[in-house]
């Protein structure tokens, strides 16, 4: 059972740029205001000052969380998660964020549209679903990524 909501063309273009070109550190997706389409709401370039200034992965992830959880909006985020297990590795992590403070209509459309986005993003290694900050905290996600 799906909402039938589709993707804006840009969604995949920016994802390819993140995955293949490592141009972005993360991308945020959300529903448009009319709730008829999923759009790439914002993204952060690896070379941007905000990211380049941060030295640890945890700080970068926290910056990502700030953008992901802004307001009471449901969002999906793709984060290029860097971690160390016998050397530096990275995994593309997909996070669904539906805070309890969001409106029920938005949550409903959000959850029933996720599949359309998720299926199009080939190469995601880890998936996390959260509705409060504990669910998507750095340590929690790191643990999942390392599995």
């Amino acid at each position: 059972m799906a909402s039938g909501v589709g993707l804006h063309n840009e969604c995949l273009t920016v994802y390819q740029e993140l995955k293949l070109g490592h141009k972005y550190k993360y991308i945020l997706y959300a529903l448009n205001d009319a709730k008829t389409e999923i759009v790439a709401e914002s993204k952060r370039e690896v070379k941007s000052k905000e990211i380049a200034d941060l030295t640890s992965e945890e700080e970068k992830y926290k910056l990502f969380l700030q953008d992901l959880t802004k307001g009471s909006t449901c969002r999906w985020g793709v984060f290029d998660f860097e971690y160390f297990v016998e050397g530096k590795r990275n995994k593309l992590t997909f996070i669904s964020w539906a805070p309890a403070s969001s409106k029920i209509k938005e949550r409903m459309v959000f959850a029933s549209s996720k599949d359309a986005l998720r299926r199009s993003l080939v190469g995601i290694a880890t998936e996390v679903q959260g509705s409060d900050e504990d669910d998507i905290a750095y340590e929690t996600v790191l643990e999942k990524v390392k599995k």
Binding site: C74, F110, A111, Q129
Partner: peptide
């Protein structure tokens, strides 16, 4: 015809 369990999960913003 829609499944009530899935509707309840979706209404909470959760696919799983």
């Amino acid at each position: 015809i829609a499944n009530t369990s899935v509707l309840n999960a979706f209404a909470a913003g959760k696919g799983s």
